[in-house]
Design a protein around this nucleic acid. Structure first.
Length: 464
RNA sequence: GGCCCCAUCGGAUAGUGGUGAGUCCAUCUGGUUCUCAGCCAGAAAACCGGGGUUCGACUCCCCGUGGGGCUACCA
């Protein structure tokens, strides 16, 4: 089969969005499943819009997603440099365009400086062009071009449909169509897996491969990710960048799971991408545009949060709350054992870290508020004081403090005829947390510890 | 406009020339638990339209319709 080499080649002109990361993921999955190499290349030939900041953000987004590359601008590699702007400086593209012009397969198109719209004349002579405003255009030959696509089959294009196109801009930079071809060829890319939006440009690229006598890679164009209205997913539809999902408290494992599942007949719903590498088969990727389903992502995230190793989740959680500047992050760091236990019971109740963080602040703040609902429904009732006092007395008397013991005690108290189990439990829950919706009461009490529980009951009693 | 791609419940998919068209998310009903979440049980919900081919088409072909892409000195 030879050595499989695939690449992800983003343009650093904005945030990395889910569509981009999905093609990166499929490329990565493909290379890993075939024991190949995954290359990261930065396509920054649009000098107006490309920035190093965006590049850095893309790299960190990719790393956050745990997509790792074997060669790239940050780590180098045999076929570097991996930034097109640097390849321009090395004269890599020029060598090829000189050849094309020499063979009259491309020409200089000279423009008027005072009217850059107007083509003055064409020439093959460098001397004539160099002092004037010019671009290099590829001379599209007669005939037709067939794209052999792994997903679409053979797609035929009539060359008449394709105009001579610019391959080198007037600023000397190659255009996309030229740069991809030369880079993919010189980097020995064997499979080009990319978004469907590139399909129509592929014949141009094939023409270039043929003119330059380079070996064609295998192409595969995968459908785009759409918003609910079936237009390409964009900011209008909500957050789309990897950063957005990160700050929403989505786990990278869940995002990857969802993206992998989207438009792919995966063998199961919940998985870790590392575990599906061997079963990855690009032929199973659906051929139609797919709508990004935020609800399903939440569900997948929930599953990952609940089943993932607690230490791993906790490590991630600690970093996340600092980055998101969550008020109680200091408290978490000051008592990690406690915080980890809180995380462990609370994760069963929420779907994202963002939800988690609004669900549990009272665990870390002794001045938690009593919600209005708790006040109306319970604090104002007669049984509140009586039973909270009783609870305090009974809990104080306990010599051991574990869940079973607590449960027994609570249930004993509930047997009283003038209060229902629900009433008592909700009163106690409210006293300890200020709220009526929390993790399980027994777990909560057990984790909070006897001292804290007694203190909190007292604090509530003062409010009554 | 021209060229190209695509089309199964609301979303994602499974599926075969003959099926009660299956599954997951979401929705709705019940059940269970200390709240919530979950879990369990159930319901509703689809083959874009029209022509062919065929004994028979969701499936194969053509035409429409709809959606998307390309047609940039953006990638």
């Amino acid at each position: 089969m030879g050595n499989i080499r695939v690449r992800f080649a983003p343009s650093p002109t904005g945030y990395l969005h889910v569509g981009g990361i999905r093609t990166a993921l499929f490329n990565w999955l493909f290379s890993k499943s075939r024991g190949g190499k995954f290359i990261l290349r930065i396509e920054d030939t649009d000098i107006q819009r490309s920035t190093r900041e965006f590049e850095a953000m893309m790299i960190s987004a990719l790393k956050w997603c745990k997509i790792e590359w074997d060669e790239g601008p940050d780590i180098g590699g045999e076929f570097g440099p991996y930034r097109q702007s640097e390849r321009v400086k090395k004269g890599i593209y020029e060598k090829f365009t000189d050849r094309l012009i020499g063979e009259k397969k491309a020409y200089y198109s000279i423009y008027a400086r005072d009217n850059p719209q107007k083509e003055l004349f064409r020439t093959y002579k460098k001397e004539e062009a160099s002092s004037r405003l010019h671009v290099i255009k590829f001379a599209v030959p007669q005939g037709s071009t067939v794209v052999k696509d792994l997903a679409k089959g053979d797609v035929r294009f009539d060359n008449h449909e394709i105009e001579d196109f610019i391959i080198v801009k007037s600023n000397g930079y190659p255009t996309y169509n030229l740069a991809v071809v030369i880079d993919d060829a010189t980097m020995k890319i064997t499979h080009v897996i990319r978004g469907e939006d590139h399909l129509s440009n592929t014949p141009k690229q094939i023409l270039l491969y043929e003119a330059l006598n380079l070996t064609l890679p295998v192409f595969m164009h995968i459908p785009l990710i759409l918003g609910p209205d079936r237009t390409p997913l964009s900011k209008r539809h909500g957050g789309t960048s990897v950063q957005y999902f990160k700050s929403e408290g989505i786990l990278p494992d869940a995002l990857m799971n969802h993206l992998a599942l989207l438009g792919w007949g995966a063998p199961k719903e919940i998985f870790h991408i590392k575990d599906i590498i061997s079963s990855f088969n690009p032929n199973r990727i659906s051929n139609k545009g797919v709508i990004f389903d935020y609800d399903k992502l939440r569900w997948i995230n929930e599953k990952h949060m609940r089943t993932m190793d607690i230490d791993e989740l906790f490590d991630y959680f600690k970093r996340w709350i600092v980055e998101e500047k969550i008020p109680f992050s200091d408290a978490v760091r000051s008592d990690e054992e406690y915080a980890k236990e809180v995380l462990d019971i609370a994760r069963q109740k929420v779907s994202t870290l963002k939800e988690l963080v609004v669900f549990i602040p009272y665990f870390f703040d002794e001045n938690y508020e009593f919600t209005q609902e708790f006040r109306n429904k319970y604090i104002t009732k007669e049984f509140a004081r009586t039973y909270l006092e009783l609870a305090h007395k009974r809990f104080k008397a306990l010599d051991t403090w574990d869940m079973m013991r607590i449960k027994d005690e609570v249930e004993k108290i509930c047997r009283a005829p003038d209060i229902s189990k629900k009433q008592f439990i909700q009163t106690l829950r409210g006293a300890l947390t200020g709220r009526l919706i929390t993790p399980g009461l027994y777990e909560t009490m057990s984790i909070m510890g006897k001292k804290r529980v007694l203190r909190r009951i007292n604090r509530c009693l003062e409010e009554i």
